[in-house]
Nucleic acid binder design. Structure first.
Lengths: 240, 240
DNA sequence: CGGTCGATTGATGCTACTCAAACTTAGTGG
DNA sequence: CCACTAAGTTTGAGTAGCATCAATCGACCG
């Protein structure tokens, strides 16, 4: 099996044949490194290509007039950062590297030809965007009806599972090198409050998080606290 | 131009030819009425068909163990309630009629054949699901970083624009026959607080809402309060 | 006319925000 | 090797927003 992040990711959910795999790979530009905080796609632009994340973490960022900042999605290795711009064209938010990251791009005209010649691949890519939407809905549930603590726990459960699907988790440890300020902007809380919730999770013995490495110490209890059900991530394989 | 809600909706964003329109229409089951609060799709099911809303309002509903209830999306006439189940299969939430509604269904095997024979229609439907995701992201921004009042105002702005695209707005008035409890579950606040925020908007002269009819009295000021930018709804036409 | 549903109002307390300061860590240049 | 700086984390104090509980009111309905 190929070790390319994109193929790795898509193959978790559906079988790709050799033709499809080589076609996907052939469309990708050479990889490029991004510095932390680099804006990879800017609000208001209509790029003409989509960007694939090869390693690191990126986030969709919306900034409000009063300075409020909300991260609406985290992308992990193998995720498209802005596949939706293929159909949506204009970006209504920007995409930023949350830590050092590596990306490659695919031109929209190539994607378009692919969707016309390979309907199965089109459905597989469509599936990726619907999973993004399912994750969005869980975040809405979290922000609307979960307690702060459960919300943070849910984020860690979700990130753990998504990184695991991307083969980036070793014994319940994974790289999570973001700031507490970013964490607050993900959860819709202040940095100070994020810090205090983190301390609760730590003293409860649920997680450890030092040097950018997150360790899940009590997976079962963390899931219970978060009311986490991985169904929405569709981690199992079934033909699309 | 056809007056079918689906065609009306899709044609706002891209041109459909006669062949595509009649194909879409031919796939739809006969319409069916739903009572308020009826569960149209249940959590955990894998329907084998998707449901189109012809009139009324429906919502995606997630219920938590502690009784907390969150509505993660509102659907209006012409929207698919669960198009994502075409690729996602299993429902991780239920879909409920928020008021009297009318629906029709499309079998997934028919959708699949359509996406293989008509790539343009596939992209148009894909676009619909990416717009859903864009709306989700705005809700995340609202719940995370907008004040309660701005959040409610933003919902009304968004709903106004979406219903307008579905030709359901007459002189800034539209049918919005939901309860304040549902409104609270949409915004992630208590019924009591929803009531109080409503009073603020009313006494500020921004809206009127009686007998299930919402009247936007000061569109400009409402948009300003909400920081509403309709870009994400992609209401303009551009080929996909 | 009682019953149910939804809207409204009041009182009380918790959650999380804001402001502000101290502290820790890593990186930089003398 | 040691200031010095900048970025990020941690702590404290006061406060605003919103939840919760509880009661009332109005409209509709059998």
């Amino acid at each position: 099996m190929s070790t390319h992040p994109l193929v790795q990711k898509l193959s978790r959910r559906d079988d790709l044949n050799g033709d499809e795999i080589s076609l996907l790979k052939s469309m990708l530009s050479p990889p490029r490194r991004c510095a932390p905080r680099e804006e990879i796609v800017r609000q208001g632009e209509a790029p003409g290509f989509s960007t694939l994340l090869l390693s690191g973490l990126c986030g969709r960022v919306t900034t409000l007039a009063n300075g409020g900042r909300q991260i609406t999605q985290i992308s992990v290795a193998g995720d498209f950062l802005d596949l939706h711009s293929f159909t949506l064209k204009v970006m209504d938010h920007s995409v930023t590297a949350l830590c050092e990251a590596e990306i490659a791009t695919v031109r929209h005209d190539q994607l378009r030809r692919l969707t016309e010649s390979h309907p199965h691949l089109a459905r597989v890519l469509w599936l990726e965007t619907t999973i993004d939407a399912a994750i969005h809905r869980q975040w809405i549930v979290s922000q609307g009806r979960r307690s702060g603590l459960a919300r943070m726990a849910h984020l860690f459960c979700e990130t753990h599972q998504r990184l695991k699907a991307a083969d980036r988790v070793i014994e319940d440890d994974f790289a999570f090198p973001i700031t507490q300020a970013d964490l607050g902007d993900i959860l819709g809380i202040s940095t100070v409050h994020a810090n205090r919730l983190l301390q609760s999770l730590r003293t409860a013995g649920l997680i450890r998080w030092t040097g950018g490495i997150m360790s899940i110490l009590a997976w079962e209890r963390l899931c219970e606290l978060a009311e986490f059900d991985p169904l929405y991530l569709r981690l199992h394989k079934s033909a699309v």
